Computed example of a mutant assay.
Amino acid sequence: MSDVDDAISAARSSWARISDTGDGVPTRARSRRTASIAKRLTWIAGAIVAILVAATLWGLVAPLGIMGAVLVMAVMVAAVLFLSFVPGQRAAPPPEKLKTVDIRALPAQTERWLGAQRGALPRPAQVLVDRIGERLDTLSPQLARIEPQTEEAFEVRRLVGEQLPAFVNDYARVPDTLRTVERNGRTPDAELVAGLQLIEREIADMTARLAQGDLDNLQTRGRFLEMKYKDGDETG
């Protein structure tokens, strides 16, 4: 079995672990969907309460009557329908924008773009997309503290804003009928999984490198506290 086959097998195992039900929806995607539904329900509830309050106040001034009650119900139904179908999230940014977006916003923008492509990818790749999304969440706070013109920022932009979208787009242009056909010892599906695995590992490495200073500071301060207070307690 090749390394790529091992990667696909591991991804499938991860899929089984992170799926909280048998419907094929991983925890990360389910959480985003649940949050979106909860937000929409909050909007609907708020709109209904506002309409009822307005109708009550109006009724204190002049009786609504049957026609007024019907009008209130119609407005409530219209508000519910509008808030049910209005887009809940902004459209994913085009890949071209990822090349120029502010470095601090790049992880979130790339994650949104990647999430929009997720449904068109094979399941093992979808698992890796979810894991890359988690890596990007972890990377984002680190980028808030670096200058946009540093080599570290350029390296992140090359991988996250350019190479990752280009790689997924290359796969998307392959006809569906050819994605499982082996070519030079590897199918396009396997090529996609292997590449996403490399990208995920590299993002994790970038995060670790950017956090190195904080890790060193924590270790230094911990040693200082031990020398100052632990030794003092023993002598006391």
Rank of each mutant, 00 (worst) to 15 (best):
I51S: 02
L41E: 07
G46P: 13
A54T: 11
D20Y: 15
L41P: 12
V25G: 06
W43M: 09
I37T: 14
W43T: 11
S31K: 05
A55V: 09
T34Q: 05
V49A: 08
A38N: 12
R17V: 13
I37Y: 02
S36W: 11
R32Q: 08
I48F: 04
K39M: 10
G22H: 03
T56L: 07
V25T: 09
G59L: 03
A29S: 13
S19A: 05
I48T: 12
I48D: 10
W15I: 15
A50N: 01
T27I: 10
I48K: 00
A47I: 06
V49E: 07
R30W: 05
I48S: 13
T34P: 03
V53T: 05
G59H: 04
R40D: 07
R40N: 06
D20F: 15
I44W: 03
K39S: 10
V25R: 00
A47T: 10
P26H: 00
D20S: 13
R28A: 09
R30H: 05
G59A: 07
L41D: 09
T21L: 01
L41C: 03
S19I: 04
W58Y: 07
W15E: 14
T34Y: 00
R17L: 08
T21Y: 03
W43R: 06
R33F: 10
G24A: 00
W43H: 11
L57A: 13
K39G: 14
R28S: 09
S31N: 09
G46L: 01
G46F: 00
G22C: 04
I18K: 01
I18Y: 07
D23V: 06
T42N: 04
R30A: 11
S36P: 06
A45G: 14
I51A: 02
I44R: 03
A35D: 09
R30P: 15
A50L: 03
G22S: 04
A54E: 07
P26K: 00
S31W: 08
S36A: 11
V25W: 03
V49W: 02
A16F: 05
S19E: 09
A45T: 14
T42E: 08
T56W: 09
